[in-house]
């Protein structure tokens, strides 16, 4: 469990990046900080492993103030994955993954064996182990970055827009891979993104941030979608443009059991299976009721909000 207590960060140049931020990040869940550029989400993330120290307030991990120990020891106990992987260009993949175990004094052979296993874990071919990072594709580099983050078997994994720089198809793969990993490994993940769809896909707890890391809303994706707390949130998740509020299109002739859904602007958003033309649990035949039923569209990757 990670707890922020009234954390404020003012940079030397006067920027107030984070103002009086308090939040509990539950263990073994994925918390996603989402917001526009400059809202302070990365600052929040980097305060957890003391890459940035707060100006005031405190952060506790499992009840222990992180400022009480050494920053280096703290960082070694937390996995960190960043955009553009941050791999060391002069070390082979295997040595990159084993960096922290080697720093901690694990024997080289053991560290390498473990690094090989981590390649399997993140879905990379072991043959890539002896390549240099520059010989890998962007998606492969990110996977190596994740493997390095997992190398010390940390309880906490910090991920700073890890999939921001890869193309959409690779990003989909990586997101699914992360969901699978999280299912298997059960880490406390803190994830930063500016992509609301990514946040809703990955997050157990989603934190929508405004400037100065002010919490606009915190909750599960369902809660946020169902009840946007403010116009800002509604706008941020795309609800105000009707993107998230779908309706059965009654103008399209039904062929088979599928029913076409349209969003608030009238654009086709997808189809829903309605056996016999009846929406599950409603008992109401589609098309017989002119008041179309709303369905929340939990992120099918089609939205661009």
């Amino acid at each position: 469990m990670i707890e922020f207590h009234s954390v404020t960060k003012r940079f030397p140049d006067g920027t107030l990046a984070v103002e009086d931020f308090s939040l509990v990040l539950p263990s073994r869940k994925t918390t996603v900080f989402v917001g526009s550029s400059g809202c302070g989400k990365t600052t929040l993330l980097r305060m957890i492993n003391r890459m940035i120290d707060p100006s005031s307030g405190s952060i506790e991990i499992d009840g222990v103030d992180i400022a009480s120990g050494s920053a280096v020891a703290l960082r070694r106990s937390i996995g960190y994955v960043m955009q553009n992987s941050g791999l060391l260009p002069h070390r082979r993949v295997i040595d990159n993954i084993a960096t922290v175990p080697l720093l901690k004094g694990v024997k080289k052979a053991d560290a390498h064996t473990q690094a090989m296993e981590l390649l399997d874990t993140v879905g990379l071919d072991r043959a890539l182990a002896y390549r240099y990072p520059s010989q890998l594709s962007g998606g492969q580099q990110q996977r190596v970055g994740v493997a390095r983050g997992l190398a010390v078997n940390p309880n906490i994994l910090l991920m700073d827009e890890p999939f921001g720089a890869v193309d959409p198809i690779v990003r989909d793969d990586l997101q699914q891979e992360l969901l699978r990993l999280q299912h298997d490994l059960d880490k406390t993940v803190v994830f930063v993104t500016h992509d609301i769809d990514e946040a809703f896909l990955l997050g157990d707890q989603v934190v929508i941030l405004e400037k100065g890391a002010q919490i606009a809303q915190v909750g599960t994706p369902k809660e946020i979608l169902a009840n946007p707390a403010s116009d800002f949130v509604a706008s941020f998740i795309g609800a105000d443009r009707g993107k998230r509020r779908l309706a059965v299109d009654s103008t399209v002739a039904r062929s088979g059991d599928d029913v076409v859904l349209v969003d608030g602007a009238g654009y086709v958003a997808g189809v829903i299976e309605a056996p016999g033309g009846v929406l599950p649990g409603s008992g109401v035949g589609v098309g017989t009721n002119s008041r179309a039923r709303s369905v929340s569209n939990k992120t099918d990757q089609a939205g661009d909000a």
Binding site: F11, T15, A17, G35, C39, G40, T42, T43
Partner: peptide
Amino acid sequence: VTSAAAPVTA
């Protein structure tokens, strides 16, 4: 701008 060390705010 790019090589300024510390403050990376997202």
